[in-house]
Simulated scan of single mutants.
Amino acid sequence: MSTAAAAPSASKPRASQEELARRSRRNDLIKTWGWRLASYVFFLGLWEFSSGRFMDETLLPGPSAVFATFGELWQSGKVPAAFATTLTRIAIGFLLAFVVGVLVGMLMQNRWLSGFFKDAVTIGVTTPGLIWALITAIVFGNREAGPLIAIVLTTFAIITVNVSEGIKSLPKDLTDMARSFGVGAIKRNRHIVIPHLAPFIFTGVRYGFSMAWKVTVLTEVFSSSSGIGFEMRTATQLFQLPVFLTWILAFYILALFLEKVVLEVIERRFFAWRATLKA
C-alpha cells in the first residue's frame, strides 16, 4: 500500500519539471520572434519616416507605396509569372550543380582525380558569381542555357568541397566493422555513409542555393528577357523606383520563405532521428 501511494507523489515533481521546461521553451520562442518582428517594425518604420522627409519620395518611396505597387503587380500577373520563370531556372540549374558537385566530390577521393579537379574546384569556389554571369551573358546572350550554366559554374564547387570533406571524415573503423559482419553495400550506404554525409550535403545545399539565387538574378539582369532580374532591369530603365523596390522586396520575401520554411523544414525532418536518440 505504501509503495502504491508513493508512486503518484513521485511522478508530480517530474511533471512539474516538464511543464517548466515547456514554459521556458515557449518564453524563449516568444522572445526570439518578438525581437525579430521588432526589427522589421523598426526598419520599416524608419524607412517610412525617411521617405519624403530626408529624401524625396520619387527617390525613396516608402513601404506603403511599395506594398501598394506589389498588390498592383500581383493582380496584373507579373509577379507570379516572373517568380515561376526564375524558380524554374534555379531548380533546373541547381539540380545539375548538385549532381555534378556530388560526383566530383566522390571522384576526388582518388589521388590522381583529386589533382585533376582540384584547381577547377578552387576556381569555382573563389570566382564571384558576377564573373560567370557576365561570361555566360556574352557567350549565350538571352538563351536559356546561359543562366543554367552560370548556376552550375557558381555552385557545384561548394557542394563538391562539402561532399569531399564529408567522405574524408567517414569513420573507417565503422565501415570495416560493417563489412566484417557481412553488411551489404546498400545497407552500409543507407545506415552509415548517407547519415554521415547528410550534414555536409545540407550545408553545401544551403550555401549553394543562396549563391544560385544571386547568380540567376544577375544573369536575368544582364541578358534575359523574363524573370525577376529582367523586371528589375526594366524598372530601372524606366526610372520606376516603386516598381524596382517592389521587385527587390518580393525577391527577399521569397528567398526568406524558401530558406527559413522549405529548406529548414526538410532539414529538420531529415534529422528527426537525432532528437529521438537524444530523448
Rank of each mutant, 00 (worst) to 15 (best):
K172S: 11
P147F: 03
V193E: 14
S180N: 10
G184C: 00
K118G: 13
I186C: 08
N142V: 10
I192A: 03
V193Y: 01
F116V: 09
R179I: 09
R179N: 12
I131N: 07
A137C: 05
A178G: 00
I167Y: 08
K187M: 10
K168N: 08
V163K: 03
R190C: 01
I192M: 08
I192K: 02
V121Q: 09
S164A: 11
I123S: 03
I186L: 13
I138D: 11
I131W: 05
V152K: 06
D173E: 13
K168C: 07
S164D: 12
L174C: 00
V152A: 07
L153K: 06
R190M: 04
K118A: 14
G141F: 06
I151C: 01
G129I: 12
A185I: 12
L174K: 09
F140R: 10
S114M: 12
I167S: 05
T127D: 04
S114L: 12
L170G: 12
R179E: 13
I123A: 11
K118C: 10
T127I: 05
A137N: 04
R179K: 14
I158R: 07
P171T: 07
N162Q: 15
I151Y: 00
I167D: 07
G166V: 07
I151G: 03
G146P: 06
E144L: 14
A137F: 05
I194M: 15
L170P: 04
T154P: 07
I131H: 11
A157Q: 01
E165K: 11
S164N: 13
G141T: 00
V139F: 07
I149L: 15
G184P: 06
R143F: 07
T136P: 00
T160N: 02
A120Q: 08
R188H: 09
A150S: 12
R188A: 13
I159G: 00
V163C: 09
V193D: 12
I186W: 06
T136H: 03
L170W: 05
V125H: 06
E144K: 04
I138Y: 14
A157K: 00
D176P: 01
L148K: 00
I186D: 11
D176A: 14
H191P: 05
I158G: 07
H191E: 13
F156V: 08
S164R: 13
A145S: 15
I135E: 01
E165Y: 06
T160Y: 02
R179P: 07
G124Q: 01
I138S: 14
R190F: 05
E144M: 10
G129M: 09
I192D: 05
S164L: 11
L134G: 12
A150D: 03
A157N: 02
F116P: 10
I186R: 08
R143K: 15
V121K: 10
F156Y: 15
R143H: 15
I123Q: 00
V183I: 15
G184S: 05
G115L: 08
L174E: 00
A178D: 04
I159T: 04
F181E: 02
V152T: 09
M177S: 13
I192G: 01
G129N: 05
V161Y: 03
I149E: 05
